[in-house]
Structure formats: structure tokens, C-alpha cells
Design a protein around this nucleic acid. Structure first.
Lengths: 187, 187
DNA sequence: CATAACATGTACCGATCGGTTCATGTTGTC
DNA sequence: GACAACATGAACCGATCGGTACATGTTATG
């Protein structure tokens, strides 16, 4: 399978970019840490930015799959799943290698709207918002789209806070807030 | 005044770091864009990281001053001020050069807890949380500290969303959520 | 006017940046 | 065993990185 070395590269590059940042990670460091030769890297990707894009797309796929799956494991009906999102976040926050959101970092290091990396990061956030909107639309909330956007704000805020203040209690605070927001729309 | 050139440098460096990022901004670019010689820069700051730290400290001072002042202009009593925060945020989101939160970016590019830059960024977030806690404590909320942390989550989430989805309506969503959270604690 | 303090431009340092070249394995397939 | 296809290491490219050296203004105060 010719895709395996390429996949191996993207998986390993993803981890290093996430850990150290994009500009702070040079191609030579990738060679040293992945054990994959620079020649091979540039046979699969024309530029470093292309490799970053591939890493972001893989991260998007892995993260959304894992997140949605976890939520579906924790709860059944849509209203409960909206709350279960924050339990899934709590798990993530407590992972040893948690370093915040890779897409927020990407949009911070490549802040030009319209550039491929920025747009890819923004797309990830939109896909997650779509997911929350779909859940909210299945509840009895009066304004499901508003609710979805508000819960997403709590989610993003929790990610930032978990990274900058530490993970303890953040998701719990957000979950309580989410309960209050849902209740306010269903009574 | 010997501090004036130094202050001018920090002010200008702050803008460039905020616009382009930290690792993506080299000293030579700072020389070109500020018009200040590299020799002078290194007479005031021993390293680039020291200049970044000075920029972050200035940003913290300017931002918190402006933010608190704006909130106090918009509302009088503490409960109303908690809501007015989101109007102040809305103003910020719509500034032409808005590029998200400089401290979130800093913690993204220097993600090692304990490093001076990361810690300085985290300190800014803590000072803002302290401010919100002080306001919340003056309301009739049943759990002012919880309310403060929740409103702060909305605030951080709004900043991220305004940067990655555009400023329109973000602060309004957050303000509605804040109203619901306050109401839930005062009735 | 002298003098000390500060700011300047330019050239330079070794290291690293993203990216290329090329010659040499290693591999699986017919 | 021959032939592609893929992977490798190492040398190399010009540019830029953070940081320094040095000699030449500029400026304000005594």
C-alpha cells in the first residue's frame, strides 16, 4: 500500500504540530522525530503548508469521529447528548497530551481569512456547529439554532479555559451552564 | 525621556505580533516596520522573548483598562455590567484589525506551562476572571463564583467564534446566554 | 564647547529555515 | 532474476533566523 508511509507521516506530523505549533516545527525536526526522510516527505507533499493541511484534515476527521462516537455512547436522546458533549470534553481535557484546540492554534498562526490553513480550521468549527445544530433541532427548544450557537460558545470557551487555567472543573461549569440554557428554552 | 523610544518600540511590536503572530515575526521585520534599529532594540531587550513579554504586558494593561472603562460607561450596577461586557466585546469584535485574542495566540505558540510567555498569557486570563468574580459577588446570584466562571466561558468562546466565524451576532448570542444564566441564579 | 548618553546603519556570526538534487538502497511483482 | 516503484541519507541551495560588533551620527545637559 503506497498510502501507508504517507499516512504514517501525516499521523506523526499531526502530533508534532499539535504539540509544538506550526511555525515552531521545522521540516528537519519532522525528519528527526518521525524517522521519515525529507525526500519522502516532499514526494508526498509539495510544501510544508500542504503537510499542515493534511494534518488538519486528519485531525478534523479523527476528532469529530471520536467526539460524536463518545457522545453517542454517553447518551441516547438529543437533549441528553447536548449535555454529554461536555463529559466528552472533560475526558479530552484530562488527556495527558492535551494542549488546547489545534484549529484555534492554526487560525492564530495563520490568521488571514481566505488562506487555505485558516479556512480549513474554520471549516472544522463549522462542521462541529452543524452537528450541534442537528442535535438541538431534535429537542423541544424554542430556538434550536440559537441554543446550538450558545452551547458552542460554551464549548469553545471551555477548551480555551481548560488549556489556560487547567482542566479541573471547567467542563463541569460548562455543563451546568448548558443545563440552564436548555431549561430556559424548554420551559 | 529615555523610556519613550522603548515605549514606541513595544507599542509597535505589539501591533505586529498581534497581526502576524510571534514565530512568524522576525526581528528584521520589526526593524523594517517600526523604523527602529536592531541595535536599539537589543539595548532595551536582551532577547526577542523579552520583547514579546513586554508586548503582552502592555496589551494586558491596555486591554483591561479599555474593557473595564467601557463596561463602566455602559452600565452602572454590577448585574448590568456583567451583561455590558458582551457589548464591549461586540465593539472589539467589529474593530477593523480584530484578530482574536493575543493571549490565546501566545499560549498556542508557547504551550509549555511554566514558560514566561505562557504564564504571562495565563495571568491575563486570571486577572479578567478576577474582575468578573468581583462583579458577580456584588449581585444577588446564589453562586457568584460559578456564575463568573460561566460568563467567562461565554466570553472566551465568543472571542474564538468571532475570530473563526466572523463577528456578526456572536456577542448577541453570548449576551442572551448570559442573561439566562444570571436569571437562573437570581430567581 | 565638551562630554556622556543614546540612536543609527551595516556588516557579520553560526544556526536553521523550506526546499532540491542525486546517487544508493530496499521492496514487491511478473 | 529483471524491472519498476518507492524510500533512503547526505550534501547542498539561497534566504532568513536571533543576536553581536563596531564605527558613526544625534542630542541634551553641564
Amino acid at each position: 500500500m503506497s498510502a501507508s508511509k504517507r499516512d504514517e507521516l501525516v499521523h506523526k506530523a499531526l502530533k508534532i504540530f499539535y504539540r509544538d505549533g506550526f511555525h515552531a516545527t521545522g521540516m528537519d525536526k519532522l525528519v528527526k522525530e518521525t524517522g521519515i526522510s525529507k525526500t519522502s516527505m516532499y514526494k508526498h507533499f509539495r510544501t510544508k503548508d500542504d503537510l499542515i493541511l493534511a494534518s488538519l484534515r486528519l485531525r478534523d476527521e479523527l476528532f469529530r469521529n471520536k467526539f460524536v462516537r463518545k457522545v453517542e455512547t454517553l447518551a441516547g436522546d438529543p437533549a441528553a447528548q447536548l449535555l454529554a458533549m461536555f463529559d466528552a470534553l472533560d475526558d479530552w481535557f484530562h488527556e495527558l497530551d492535551f494542549r488546547g484546540c489545534m484549529f484555534i492554534k492554526a487560525s492564530g498562526e495563520f490568521p488571514i481569512k481566505g488562506s487555505p490553513i485558516y479556512d480549513t480550521a474554520a471549516e472544522h468549527k463549522k462542521l462541529l456547529l452543524d452537528y450541534v445544530e442537528k442535535l438541538a433541532a431534535q429537542t423541544t427548544a424554542k430556538d434550536p439554532l440559537l441554543l446550538a450557537r450558545q452551547l458552542t460558545l460554551l464549548k469553545e470557551g471551555a477548551i480555551v479555559a481548560a488549556h489556560m487555567r487547567g482542566p479541573e472543573g471547567i467542563a463541569a461549569d460548562a455543563k451546568l451552564a448548558a443545563e440552564a440554557l436548555i431549561k430556559a428554552q424548554t420551559t
